[in-house]
Design a protein around this nucleic acid. Structure first.
Length: 446
RNA sequence: GGUUCCAUCGUCUAACGGUUAGGACGCCAGGUUCUCAUCCUGGAAAUCGGAGUUCGAUUCUCCGUGGAAUCACCA
């Protein structure tokens, strides 16, 4: 492409709703492209629709981009640039490229301003899609302003892109049909034509347009509350419609900037695959130290921490256990909600049916638990999972692993599913473990 | 319907016109301690269809078919 020219890209969202995932991806590609070329990334809030634009949406957009680490080099707000648009509308009228037309749709007394369409074939080369050709005749003399003070999207975009010297317009493919009319206006105004790159759309997991009706698709900033790490979201979104050309799956923002190549961007839309996002998030979580992970999940435990059963030393021990079951925060939330963590802090209920291994009978279960109690009582030394396992393993192999392991694990956890008994033993400690085995035996002997 | 764009495993994708069509997510099976999870190994899984060009098409051309976007005095 044009290497001498300074690269300036822009993200131009209209703040009419919470910033969504598609907007983030468009911003990301603009950001990556600009930074890859040592260029400038501009944010321009397109808030000319007074009815629908809200400051809180603009704020949400800015918060989202900041969270994700996309710093902008300049910020503009279209609502503050009305005189500029006015000037350009006048210019178009004066040069006979636009004219006041009959009547406004909702106000018969007010004329609108239409662009005088030269009715020609417009061709442009899209950096992603290649050569594209439109016959603009079908557009007619389209409206560019409701009145001299109220410009319409097509006019403001062209004026701003021109004045801000945007070198590359990277935007969603839904804008491709807008391009010819914008080129027409741009030519009438005498601006230099930028390069265009229309990015493939992110599609619903079920095909079609991304919609609020897709349950996994939420406003981008809300993924933060779900414990999606900014690096993970950026990584994930960058890989919808782009890849580095090798087999890497995990890339940091810096690596993405270094390797981003617009010519490798896909032409067709890509589905939003939430499972992959969660997997990527886990990859980043794996980089955390136990301390960092503890901080990550801490907000979910404030309630538990205020109860008398809470034990900080136990909490420390179960961090690794929680960790390997966690892709993102909601997984931890689910564990808490489902009571999967309760038995670490309090004696669980024992179901005397479930404690009996499927291949064993009640008498056997009692005998094995008594033996386990005996072996653990006599255990001297550091109470670690590995060492405790050694002391029980010979017996376990003798009687059949499941015959001992299942009831032992169940006695400790009161659950069908849990970590292995040795991990449980080490986590609960010798004293508590023995108490639970005794309790299970007393239940069985009732 | 008009216009524009697109088409490789279920999904994200790789493959100078020559590969057993590769990788990742997910799925299935086996293993690592009974269960769950993690991890490891293995497996199933794709070039939309038809012509043409070519010694040879996933790749180039055309025609179908399918999908998407857009058709505002919203952006």
């Amino acid at each position: 492409m044009n290497t001498e020219k300074k690269v300036i890209t822009r993200m131009a969202p209209s703040p009419t709703g919470k910033f969504h995932i598609g907007g983030v991806r468009t911003a990301l590609f603009n950001y990556l492209f600009a930074k890859h070329h040592n260029g400038t990334f501009i944010i321009r809030s397109e808030d000319t629709d007074k009815e629908r634009s809200k400051p809180e949406y603009e704020e949400n957009m800015l918060d989202t981009l900041e969270w994700l680490g996309m710093k902008h080099d300049a910020f503009y707000r279209q609502s503050e640039r009305t005189e500029i648009y006015q000037e350009h509308i006048k210019k178009l009228i004066d040069s006979s490229n636009a004219y006041e037309a009959e009547a406004s749709k909702d106000n018969p007394d007010m004329p609108v301003i239409r662009f005088k369409n030269p009715n020609k074939i417009v061709k442009f080369t899209d950096l992603i899609l290649g050569d594209i050709e439109f016959d603009t005749t079908e557009l007619g003399d389209f409206v560019i302003a409701r009145n001299i003070e109220t410009p319409i999207y097509h006019l403001t975009v062209v004026v701003d892109d021109g004045l801000m010297e945007i070198s590359h317009i990277l935007r969603g493919q839904e804008h491709i049909n807008n391009t010819p009319r914008q080129i027409l206006i741009l030519e009438a105004l005498g601006f230099e034509r930028p390069e265009y790159a229309h990015i493939p759309l992110i599609m619903s997991p079920r095909g079609g347009k991304l919609s609020k009706r897709d349950p996994e698709v939420i406003p981008a900033y809300e993924y933060k509350d779900q414990g999606i790490l900014p690096e993970a979201l950026v990584n994930f979104l960058a890989f919808i419609g782009w890849n580095p050309g090798d087999e890497r799956e995990i890339m940091s923002m810096d690596e993405l900037i270094a390797d981003f190549d617009i010519s490798k961007v896909q032409k067709s839309g890509g589905a939003f695959n939430i499972d992959k996002m969660h997997w990527i998030n886990k990859q980043y979580l794996n980089e955390f130290s136990d301390t960092e992970f503890a901080e990550y999940i801490a907000p979910l435990f404030t309630e538990l921490k205020s109860t008398p059963i809470y034990d900080e030393s136990v909490m420390q021990k179960i961090i690794p256990i929680i960790r390997e079951r966690t892709n993102y925060l909601i997984d931890v939330q689910d564990m808490i909600t489902d009571g999967e963590l309760d038995y670490y802090f309090a004696q669980p209920e024992i179901d005397t049916e479930k404690i009996i291994w499927k291949k064993d009978v009640k008498e056997g279960t009692i005998r094995h638990l008594e033996e386990a109690h005996e072996l653990i009582s006599n255990f001297n030394g550091e109470f670690t999972a590995d060492l405790v396992k050694e002391s029980l393993w010979i017996y376990a192999e003798e009687v059949g692993k499941g015959n001992l392991l299942w009831p032992l694990r169940y006695a400790l956890s009161g659950r069908d599913k849990s970590p292995d008994p040795f991990t449980l033993l080490a986590t609960l400690g010798k004293k508590t473990s023995l108490e639970r085995i005794t309790f299970a035996l007393s239940e069985l002997n009732k």
